[in-house]
Computed example of a mutant assay.
Amino acid sequence: MPQEEQVLVVERRILDDVGTFHGLNFDVERYLDAFFAQGRPRFIARPQAEKDPSYKQIIPYVIMICEDKCLTYVRGKRAGETRLVGNRSIGIGGHINPVDDAIPLFNTDFRDVYQAAVQREVAEEVSVDASYTDRVVALLNDDSNEVGQVHLGVVHCWVLDAPNVTKREQMITQMDFMTVEQLQAVRDTMETWSQLCLDGLGRMMHHIESRI
């Protein structure tokens, strides 16, 4: 019998203590310091995590930008999250599993675990043949639907020096780079997280430029 997938979560009350929000929040370090403090992150079985809103699954959500265009794709039938099949996305990402932890669990630096997960998730889904800068620009929360109620996004912007990205996952279809204007024209077809990120893209880019 296959072992249940384990995913990284924090208790919802930790988010509540720091300050619950809807949409994007740009006070990144304050939240990440709280989420990754010793003893707070943990791995639990994914079936439990998907049904229990007292936990938030930590999900890296990587937006790739080259010049004035953003990578976008449609989630095909092989998507791991069946509730999002057919939706357009501008985020690459997924769950953080124990495989990302290369050091003993009781001494785990979960920030290292998290960063390893970002690299793994991107490498599993796409191949990036370009140099890039990686910035964590926002936290993302949406409790308006059953998917969002059990997930919390950590939004990265990868600014690429060339649009050389090819898909590796079968669930990725119709992948292309599109301008903000083109994305706005298809906004209604997007998953909720991507809609929120598209609406906040200008502020994200300002956040990146202010830190260069």
Rank of each mutant, 00 (worst) to 15 (best):
E146W: 03
E4F: 04
A130L: 08
D134A: 14
V9Q: 05
L24R: 15
Y61P: 01
N25P: 10
D143F: 04
T189I: 07
N141S: 14
H206V: 00
P53N: 06
R78G: 05
G148D: 03
S210K: 12
W193C: 07
M205A: 03
G91V: 13
Q3L: 03
H156I: 06
D161I: 11
V122H: 10
V28S: 12
K51D: 00
F21M: 15
P47M: 05
G23V: 10
D101R: 15
R46F: 01
K77I: 01
A49T: 00
R83I: 00
V180D: 14
T179R: 12
V122P: 10
G200F: 10
E4R: 06
G76W: 01
E191W: 11
D68F: 08
R42T: 05
I14G: 02
L84W: 01
F177K: 08
L71I: 03
H206A: 05
S131F: 11
W158I: 07
E29Y: 00
A49D: 00
L152S: 12
V28A: 13
A162T: 08
D188K: 12
G80N: 01
G23L: 12
R88W: 03
L71W: 14
I92G: 11
A49S: 02
L196P: 01
E81L: 01
V180E: 15
A45G: 05
V150N: 08
E191F: 10
C66T: 12
P60G: 09
I103P: 02
E121K: 11
R120L: 04
I212T: 08
D134G: 06
V147T: 10
G23F: 09
G93H: 10
T192R: 15
Q119E: 14
T179L: 12
R203Y: 02
E146F: 04
V99H: 09
V154N: 07
L198H: 05
L140S: 11
R187L: 14
P60K: 01
D101T: 11
Q184C: 10
Q119D: 14
V85C: 03
T82Q: 02
D100W: 15
P163D: 10
Q38L: 07
P2C: 00
L24A: 11
F35L: 05
F35P: 03
L140G: 05
A185H: 11
